[in-house]
Amino acid sequence: MSVTAPLGFEAAGVAVGLKSSGSPDVAVVVNRGPLKVGAAVFTSNRAKANPIIWSQQAVQDGVVEAIVLNSGGANCFTGSFGFQTTHQTAEKAGQLLGVSAGDVLICSTGLIGTGDEAFRGKVLEGTEKGIAQLSADGGEAASLAIMTTDSRPKRSVVTRNGWSIGGMAKGAGMLAPGLATMLVVITTDAVIDAGQADAALRDATRVSFDRLDSDGCMSTNDQVTLMASGASGITPDFAAFAGALADVCADLARQLQGDAEGASHDITIEVVHAASEEDAVEVGRSVARNNLFKAAIFGNDPNWGRVLAAIGTTAAEFDPYDVDVWMNGVRVCSQGGPDASRDDVDLAPRATHLLIDLRVGAATATILTNDLTHDYVHENSAYAT
């Protein structure tokens, strides 16, 4: 049930014609309490969609009563009309739910730069229709409604000692870090306050969504939201809650990676023995964004030279002639020179593991990415048609 697995939440997913396919395209998730705690992290892209601008202000008081999400239109670069659409959506939801519009977050996903009266009308219709269909079983429908180019919904639930966390996510392209990746809604019935929610969410996204770098393209609409109802009546140890939240975020991030547009390999880049975590992240990301490396993996070519060339562009502390590189368990490079034969590396499986040993410290980091394929280029060349 994803977001309605924890107690105190209702959700719905409805179709109002935003998608040409006729599939669900507006989702509503409502926190029935008794707590109405909320926290969110947003894209760091300076080009922000209208829902991001709204939600960044609305969440500042740590109270979130509901969230309305639409697919089929990003409502980004749509001027004052677009912001008015976001405002009216929150007002509509607030009116129907009997809550303040300022406690309603808004998310949108789809094509940038499009929006008219028909779009606004459908979003408002979907908000009304969704609220009318709210139920404790509506989490699955909501997870379907937020999909765009996704081939499948992403859901995750963990249950602990009397409390739980549930989540849903959408994302298949424009997956790059910057506090959050695409649209994610997470709910919990644990008793936590706004400060704890914010701290735990930022810690969890830092090592999950912020480490997903599928194609190096940062969206204008990225948002991860956490809502806490306290309906379980249980106050967990903060470390236990933070760990469970990190597990949900990591699971959803992996699902996003596995559904990346056109990908044929899911690449896990593990950097070990770095001087600092920042260095490990920088090195891993340099490889994740290297098109030559990603194209080589698509061609099942264990071209480790492209790995060293990529990490050599970073400011991380290491000696490029004292680095080891492993591909799917085979050490192809030892201390900056050839080791095992490339013929020993099997890159046929979708799961691909790259291990980079910098041999200078004790810090590690893992970055998730995908290969660069013909299908990815084709899908994104025709996205707006």
Rank of each mutant, 00 (worst) to 15 (best):
E282P: 00
G17I: 04
A141C: 09
A190W: 10
I106K: 01
F241I: 01
L144S: 05
Q60A: 15
A142F: 09
R342T: 12
A5K: 00
H87W: 14
A250C: 11
E140T: 11
K170E: 06
T373Q: 04
D198S: 12
R206I: 00
G173S: 14
A190I: 11
D222V: 04
A240Q: 13
R46N: 12
G13N: 11
L97R: 08
A240R: 10
A40Q: 06
D193E: 08
S80C: 06
G115P: 10
A315N: 14
V360R: 14
T188R: 05
I269C: 06
N328M: 07
A253E: 02
L183N: 01
G115V: 12
I311D: 04
G113T: 02
E128P: 04
V360D: 11
T225W: 02
A39C: 03
A384Y: 11
A15Y: 03
W326E: 15
W163I: 10
G38H: 09
P6Y: 01
I186P: 00
A231K: 09
R254F: 06
V37I: 15
A204K: 07
A136D: 13
V37L: 07
T225V: 15
V68Q: 06
E270Y: 08
R120I: 00
V325D: 06
N45L: 02
I356N: 03
D237M: 05
D198W: 00
S55I: 04
A365V: 06
V158L: 11
T86Q: 08
R32V: 07
G73V: 02
V30E: 07
A239S: 13
R306L: 14
C76H: 04
I269N: 04
T159Y: 00
V3Y: 01
S229V: 08
A316N: 10
Y321W: 14
A118H: 01
T235A: 13
E117C: 00
N380K: 09
L308C: 09
Q56K: 15
L372F: 15
M218L: 13
G167Y: 09
L97F: 03
A275F: 05
S214I: 12
G121V: 02
L212M: 04
A190G: 11
G38L: 11
A11N: 10
L354K: 08
A199G: 00
T78G: 01
G98A: 02
L256R: 00
F318E: 10
G195E: 12
